[in-house]
C-alpha cells in the first residue's frame, strides 16, 4: 500500500507488467483506502457499541434508562446501580470466588502445564508421542460427556467434605474451590500449549547443564522456565480468562450462594432483575472489568498467543 502512494517507485517495478493501469492507480488506491476505513470503522462500531452502551446504562439512574435510552453519555451519572448490585446479592463474595478460581487455575496450569509441556518437548522417553496424542485427543472430547461422571467423582471423593473412605456420607468436594480447580489444574491445553512453546527453545542449553551435573528439575526450573516467560504469561492470562468466564461447570458444582462465581451470580441476576436493567448492567460491567483490564494491558501477547495456538 505504501508503495502505491509513491508512483515513481511503483512504476519502475510494475511498468513492464501493467503499463495501462499506471495513471488510475493512485486514485483507485485512495478510494480503496477510504472504503477500507469505512468497513473497519463500521465493524468496530458493531463490536464496541454494545459494550459502551452497557457501561452507559450501568451509570444511568432508572428513570433515564427507560426514558432517553439512546444517549450514550448519562445526563445524571450515578453509582446507584453498582451499590444495588453489591447489596442485593453478595457480589463482592462472587468476585472473590471468581478471583480465587481464576488465579488458582492460572498458577496450577502454568506450573504443571510448564513442567508437562517441557517433558514432552525436551525429554526423550518411550511413549512420548503416544502420550501427547492422548492429551491432544482429550481436547476433542466434548465436555458434556465427562460432566456427570466428573460431578459424581467429586461428590464421592474419598475422605473429603465429610466423606468416608468409600466416598459416602458427605458432599465430597462439591461446593469447594477444589471442585473447579482440581479437574482443570493441569489441563491438556496447558501441556499442549507449553510443549509447542518449549520446542522453539534450543536443546543445547539443557545438554550443557546436564554435562555439568545439573538435575533435570534444575535444568527446567533455572534454565528453560525463565526463558519461557512470554509463553507462560500468555498461558496464565488465557487460563485466568477461561477460569473467570467459565459458567457451566461452576453452575453445577458450586450451588451454595457463598461459593458462587460472578458468572453464576450474574446469570441468576437476569432472572431476579428481569427488567431492572441498571443493576443488571452494573453487574455485567463488574463481571467483565477484570478480564477486560487484563486484556487491555496484555492484548498484544493474548492475540499473539491465540495466533500461535491456531497456527499449529
Amino acid at each position: 500500500m505504501t508503495t502505491i502512494s509513491r508512483p515513481g517507485v511503483d512504476d519502475r517495478v510494475r511498468s513492464h507488467s501493467a503499463p495501462a493501469r499506471r495513471n488510475t492507480k493512485p486514485r483507485r488506491a485512495g478510494v480503496t483506502t477510504a472504503c477500507w476505513y469505512v468497513a473497519v470503522v463500521a465493524l468496530s462500531v458493531v463490536t464496541v457499541a454494545p459494550l459502551v452502551w452497557t457501561l452507559s446504562t450501568a451509570l444511568k439512574p432508572a428513570g433515564e434508562i427507560l426514558g432517553g435510552a439512546l444517549n450514550l453519555i448519562p445526563e445524571n451519572p450515578t453509582l446507584q446501580n453498582f451499590r444495588e448490585a453489591f447489596t442485593a446479592v453478595p457480589f463482592a463474595r462472587y468476585l472473590l470466588n471468581s478471583l480465587i478460581i481464576g488465579v488458582g487455575g492460572a498458577v496450577t496450569n502454568v506450573f504443571f502445564g510448564g513442567l508437562g509441556g517441557y517433558a514432552l518437548a525436551k525429554l526423550n522417553f518411550r511413549g512420548r508421542k503416544a502420550l501427547f496424542a492422548l492429551f491432544l485427543s482429550s481436547l476433542m472430547i466434548p465436555g458434556i460427556v465427562t460432566m456427570i461422571p466428573s460431578f459424581l467423582i467429586l461428590r464421592y471423593f474419598p475422605l473429603a467434605g465429610g466423606n468416608d473412605l468409600l466416598g459416602q456420607g458427605g458432599l465430597g468436594l462439591i461446593n469447594t474451590y477444589w471442585a473447579v480447580l482440581l479437574p482443570g489444574a493441569a489441563g491438556a491445553f496447558a501441556v499442549f500449549f507449553m510443549k509447542q512453546f518449549f520446542e522453539t527453545l534450543p536443546d543445547e542449553l539443557g545438554e550443557a547443564a546436564r554435562i555439568d551435573g545439573a538435575s533435570e528439575f534444575r535444568i527446567f526450573a533455572q534454565i528453560y522456565f525463565p526463558l519461557a516467560k512470554a509463553g507462560l504469561a500468555v498461558l496464565a492470562i488465557l487460563t485466568f480468562q477461561a477460569g473467570w468466564n467459565n459458567f457451566l461447570w461452576p453452575l453445577i458444582v458450586l450451588n451454595n450462594q457463598e461459593m458462587m462465581t460472578v458468572q453464576v451470580g450474574l446469570a441468576s441476576f437476569v432472572n431476579n432483575y428481569e427488567t431492572n436493567f441498571g443493576p443488571l448492567m452494573a453487574g455485567t460491567v463488574l463481571a467483565s472489568l477484570p478480564v477486560l483490564a487484563v486484556f487491555i494491558v496484555a492484548q498484544r501477547y493474548i492475540i499473539e498467543g491465540v495466533a500461535h495456538v491456531g497456527s499449529r
Binding site: 513442567l115 508437562g116 522417553f125 518411550r126 502420550l131 465427562t146 501441556v191
Partner: peptide, 29 residues
Amino acid sequence: KQIRRSAWLFLLAPCALFLIFVLLPNVIA
C-alpha cells in the same frame, strides 16, 4: 534413564488428572 524417570515425574500431575477426570469419567459415562 534419569531423563525418562524425570519426564514421567514431570508429567505425573497431568497424567493423574487425565486418568481421574478424563479417562475414568468416560468409562463411568
